[in-house]
Nucleic acid binder design. Structure first.
Lengths: 176, 176
DNA sequence: CTTGAAATGAATTGTCC
DNA sequence: GGACAATTCATTTCAAG
C-alpha cells in the first residue's frame, strides 16, 4: 500500500523524523542496513549478508532487487584510487562568467578532461568546478591556459585540496 | 620486475604519456578497460565481461584480483540516490579559522552529521566543507547555529549547489 | 604465460508455509 | 517474511598449447 507524503502527519509511535521519512518513501530500517552494508562492500554475497544480519536470504534478494528497481541504489560500482593512476592534485575552482555564455562554457568544461564536475552555485561565484591533474604545474596550465581563456569567463579562483576527509555515508546519520 | 619511476625515461615505442605511466605502475590497457567496465557496472559477472571484452575468463579473474590486491580498486560499492533519502540541499561552505583551533574544529565537523567531507585548501579559505541537508532552512540552521558557533571559526561563506554535472571517470581521459 | 574445459561449490529462483 | 528444493551460474583447478 502506497501512502502519499503530503497527506500524512507523523504518528506518535514513529520515533525519529528519519524513520518517518523512510516509511513515507517506503523504505525501512532493513533497507538502510542493506545500503550501509552494500556501501561498505558491494561484492558481498547475499547468503553471507543473510548470516551477518540474521535475515533470510530470500528476503534480502527481494529487498535489494527493490532498492535497485526503485533507484535508491543507482548502480553497483567500484571505488578507484586516483593517486595510483597519477592524479596527485585535486582542486576546486570558483568561477564568474558572463551569463550570455553559460551553455557554451558548460560545453567547453565537458570537453576538458581535467574537469571532473561542474556545479552551478549561489554566492560569490557562479560556478564551482572540480579539477584533477597530475601535478601542480599541469593544474596551473589547465586553469590559466584552458579555462581562463574560455570566452565569457571573467574570473577564476583556485582552491587546491591539501587534505581531504570523507565521512560516513549520509543515510547513517540523523539529519535535523 | 619492478622499475622505479624516476630512473626511467619514456621509450619511443610507447605512444602516450598515460600508457607509459600505466606501465610504470604495472597496469595496462586491459586493466583500464576493466576499471571502466566495473565502474559502469560493479555487479557484472566475470563470464559476462569475458564475452563482452572477448577475453578469457580466467585472465579476467586474475586481473581483477590483482587490481583489488594492488588497491587500484579500493572497494566494490553502491551508488545511492541521496535525494530519495530526503537530501535535497547540498552546499559547499568556505571557512576561515584560527589555526590554534585546527584539530578541535576538525573534530567538531566529524561530529556534525550534515558535514560529509572536510578539505584543507589553499587560497581565500582555510577549509572547504560539504554539507548535506533536508532543505534550505535546515542548511541555514546548520551553518549558522552549529558551524558558525564553533570556537575558532572566524568566517563562513556558503555556496548552495543549484545543479551539478558529474563527468566520466578520470582513467578514461588523457590528462596533460 | 595463456586457453579452454571439466568439476566443484556457491548463488539465485520459485514454491510453499 | 521464512524455509527448502531445484536450478543456474560463478569460480577454481588442471591439463595442454
Amino acid at each position: 500500500m502506497k501512502i502519499h507524503n503530503s497527506f500524512v502527519s507523523k504518528p506518535t509511535y514513529i520515533k525519529s523524523q528519519r524513520e518517518f521519512s523512510n516509511i513515507l518513501h517506503g523504505f525501512d530500517e532493513l533497507d538502510m542496513k542493506l545500503l550501509f552494508e552494500l556501501t561498505k562492500d558491494g561484492s558481498i554475497s547475499v547468503p553471507t549478508l543473510s548470516k551477518k544480519l540474521g535475515i533470510n536470504a530470500s528476503v534480502l534478494y527481494s529487498r535489494i532487487k527493490r532498492l535497485v528497481k526503485k533507484k535508491l541504489i543507482k548502480k553497483f560500482t567500484v571505488e578507484i584510487d586516483d593517486s595510483l593512476l597519477g592524479i596527485s592534485v585535486k582542486a576546486n575552482v570558483g568561477i564568474n562568467r558572463d551569463p550570455k555564455f553559460k551553455d557554451e562554457i558548460h560545453k567547453k568544461f565537458m570537453e576538458t578532461p581535467e574537469v571532473v564536475s561542474i556545479s552551478e552555485i549561489t554566492g560569490r561565484f557562479d560556478i564551482m568546478i572540480q579539477v584533477y591533474a597530475k601535478n601542480l604545474e599541469s593544474l596551473h596550465s589547465v586553469v590559466i591556459e584552458k579555462i581562463g581563456k574560455i570566452e565569457g569567463i571573467q574570473n577564476t579562483e583556485t582552491f587546491v585540496e591539501l587534505q581531504k576527509t570523507d565521512k560516513d555515508p549520509v543515510y547513517l546519520n540523523e539529519l535535523t
